[in-house]
């Protein structure tokens, strides 16, 4: 009895850890929290030329000595139209640093309508001392986005990854 219950305890401790990959898989399958994987363009989306949406671009760093900014602070686009924007990062320090960008969208429902095909946030970025890099983001906003949304914000924050840490997802 003692042995059985003790083993059960160990199994439940492992179960706590098993919840981590389970959670990742669950989010991946259901498409919740799908911030860091590229989307695939399945079919040509209709461009809705009757609407304009302003996309504000925002860039932050947290805890690492980088300059990080978008080359244009906002773009006006039609829903459904493929958009390219550029960001620039510069390493101001004299050491090599690994950084990882985490996106954040406003309004929150934007996540459902945003399709990103290319983004620097899909992998970690390694900058040598004083290196400057320009990086594109390629996305469309689906025409299904509610009509009352005229302005959206796409924000990125760079965090430092411990050296030697792997990228978030190796894809």
């Amino acid at each position: 009895m003692l042995k059985k219950l003790f083993i059960f305890t160990i199994v439940m401790f492992g179960f706590g850890y098993a919840l981590v990959p389970f959670y990742d898989k669950f989010c991946e399958v259901t498409g919740i929290n799908n911030l860091l994987q590229p989307d695939v363009l399945t079919k040509e989306t209709q461009v809705d030329t009757s609407r304009w949406i302003t996309v504000e671009l925002d860039a932050n760093t947290r805890g690492l000595p980088w300059q990080f900014r978008p080359l244009q602070s906002s773009v006006r686009i039609h829903p459904g139209e493929p958009v390219d924007v550029m960001y620039e990062i510069r390493n101001d320090s004299d050491r090599e640093i690994n950084g990882q960008a985490i996106p954040s969208y406003s309004p929150r429902s934007l996540e459902k309508y945003l399709r990103k095909f290319e983004c620097f946030c899909f992998t970690k970025q390694v900058l040598k001392p004083n290196e400057v890099r320009q990086m594109p983001v390629q996305f469309i906003i689906e025409p299904g986005i509610p009509a009352d949304i005229n302005t959206v914000t796409i924000s990125y924050t760079f965090f430092e990854l411990p050296s030697g840490a792997k990228a978030i997802k190796d894809n």
Binding site: G16, Q100, I102
Partner: peptide, 30 residues
């Protein structure tokens, strides 16, 4: 016995996040 080990697990994750460089709950590390 069903849930206490899960609590022990989650505080262990917190501990390794704080001191041993894991990123269970750290968005920057995935």
């Amino acid at each position: 016995v069903l849930v206490m080990p899960v609590l022990a697990g989650v505080v262990t994750m917190l501990l390794t996040d704080r001191h041993f460089g894991t990123s269970f709950f750290n968005a920057a590390g995935g």
